[in-house]
Design a protein around this nucleic acid. Structure first.
Lengths: 183, 183
DNA sequence: CACAACCTTGCCGTTGACGTAAAGGTTAGG
DNA sequence: CCTAACCTTTACGTCAACGGCAAGGTTGTG
């Protein structure tokens, strides 16, 4: 994931090394189920930058770019993050990487400690933010599965050709009590 | 749903019936951390309707309304659902309730079976949609926690006054395999 | 070299989810 | 009964996240 560096004209001669197939924007869009407009918009927001440009300024994307775009899309679709939040996450990710480099070039224990503490704070914030969403979602899944089980009970009753057993149905929606186990 | 007394008729007799405190829009908004505009907007989108209106057409909300609003807010903030999707979920919920009523007024086994099958399909769709998001989030939490653990290792090394051990730093990103079981 | 099928930047339009202000009516306390 | 502090509907404004043109340049295939 090193497309933060400049589009160096890394033109190794055409020996039989990997073809490294650079894709044009429309091909990337089709692969990921996005539009070209969306990809350009993400670039405008500085969420990514294509690996390079052609002679005539066509954007050229490599496999890392596609991974990054897929990551953005997943965050957007599945987690419901705003593009600003996604930018923050990617930014933290980049900072993490830079810190790692800096970390390796120093031997001062205090500085190393500072770097790590900073990283730890960032990661803790990230975890808290993610876990809150995740837990809430998991609760909703649990609730839905409870209803599903209930329905299956009904089916079993029917298959047995019985009258419905006199069970409760005491759920008026909104049961916001304990329900949450640690996880 | 069924509150028969008007608000001004403060019958202060010793009847132990709950006062059923109907709230006005600003009180509800403050309680939930929303704005009055937002609540009215949700009503405009038919996501809810206040339990009643005062003589002079003031909206009056009861505890169920507040629960429903909190549910909407959670879905919006934590799950990132659009208001349209939330409307669909609430709609399904309402259909479920209606089906239950219909279910109890019929004795035809075939019809009962049809009702349940319909409900089951709906709930399965809901579960799938929720679980996909939840799982993805859980994966991201796991990943972040892995990084956190890694950082703690580094700290331990530093505290021991050691040189960093020659560990790997292998693949950080893209772990796509199985990771999270149901729960 | 012609040309269709891509691409570029620029810019205005749209939809969702509200903010905000106007012009008036309602409620509760003094 | 007065009045401040709420409330009502109506309507225009805004920001994010794109959609969709226009006017022109680039590519590669015949």
């Amino acid at each position: 994931m090193s497309h933060l560096d400049h589009p160096t004209a890394a033109v190794a001669d055409d020996s039989a090394v990997t073809p490294a197939p650079l894709l044009r924007i429309q091909e990337v869009a089709a692969t990921l189920g996005l539009t070209t407009r969306t990809i350009r918009y993400y670039e405008e927001l500085r969420l990514l930058e294509p690996a390079g440009r052609s002679e005539g300024d066509y954007r050229q994307y490599d496999a890392d770019d596609i991974e990054r775009l897929r990551f953005i899309k997943d965050l957007r679709d599945d987690a419901g993050f705003s593009l600003a939040e996604i930018g923050q996450l990617l930014e933290d990710e980049a900072a993490r990487r830079r810190n790692r480099a800096r970390f390796r070039t120093t031997t001062d224990a205090a500085e190393r400690r500072a770097i790590i503490d900073d990283a730890l704070g960032r990661v803790d914030r990230q975890i808290a933010s993610l876990r809150e969403k995740s837990d809430r979602l998991a609760d909703m899944v649990d609730e839905a599965e409870g209803r599903r089980a209930h329905l299956l009970d009904h089916i079993a009753e029917l298959e047995a050709g019985r009258e419905p057993a006199p069970h409760d149905h005491a759920r008026p929606r909104a049961g916001r009590a304990a329900n949450q186990a640690g996880r």
